[in-house]
């Protein structure tokens, strides 16, 4: 049974849901079964959010720890938190921009993303087979919009061939159907942005 297991993680409101829906639509257009699950409700407000996405025939939307082929992380600490799901030698594609939780601000802590990305780099070649860290500040500056980080990360995953049978063209086709025409060009640019 060939299932591609993907974890999308971040902080509430970062656009993980759209990325997961686009991938699902792209998979369905290939005739593949898809399941996904996500956090909704109280846990969402400012909290860690995680979506599970499974492409191929499966019985549950949830993913067993140590079985994810790919982690798409929208926030570096959340990426590290999700590592328990990663299959040995799996792929990690993450943003490097840290989101400061209020609790950290209260304690006067200066939690920074670099500590997390350094840690991820230390695992490359061992737990992590392929690591892509996207410099979010320059990506958003180059693209001129703060809303397309999800497409930058998803594009990297698709172009790297990490979404199972789903290709970048499948994602683009799905995007054209789901997103308003005036945003197509921006999103296409975002999908092609990251170096892999």
């Amino acid at each position: 049974m060939s299932v591609t297991n993907i974890i999308l993680c971040g902080v509430g409101g970062q656009g993980t849901v759209l990325a997961s829906k686009l991938t699902a639509a792209a998979s369905m257009s290939r005739g593949l079964e898809v399941r996904s699950a996500e956090t909704i409700g109280m846990a969402q407000r400012g909290g860690s959010v995680m979506s599970y996405l499974r492409i191929g025939e499966s019985f549950t939307p949830l993913i067993l720890n140590g079985c994810a082929d790919l982690i798409i992380g929208f926030e570096p600490a959340e990426t590290v938190r999700a590592l328990t799901y990663l299959k040995k030698g799996g792929t990690v594609i993450t943003s490097d921009r840290a989101m400061m939780p209020v609790t950290a601000a209260l304690k006067g802590s200066d939690y920074e993303g670099k500590r997390m990305t350094d840690y991820l780099k230390s695992l490359e070649g061992d737990l992590i087979g392929k690591l892509v860290i996207v410099n979010t500040d320059s990506a958003l500056k180059d693209l001129g919009s703060s809303k397309v980080m999800n497409m930058v990360l998803l594009g990297a995953a698709a172009r790297g061939g990490y979404l199972g049978a789903v290709t970048i063209d499948d994602i683009k086709d799905a995007l054209v159907k789901k997103v308003k025409p005036q945003f197509h060009e921006l999103n296409f640019k975002a999908l092609e942005y990251a170096e892999i």
Binding site: R45, G46, P101, T103, M116, L127
Partner: peptide, 18 residues
């Protein structure tokens, strides 16, 4: 056994008012 992962200290994110 899952590979033991010793991560750096992670920020906790309890839900807060927006």
């Amino acid at each position: 056994a899952l590979p033991s992962i010793e991560t750096p200290e992670l920020p906790v994110r309890p839900p807060v008012l927006c």
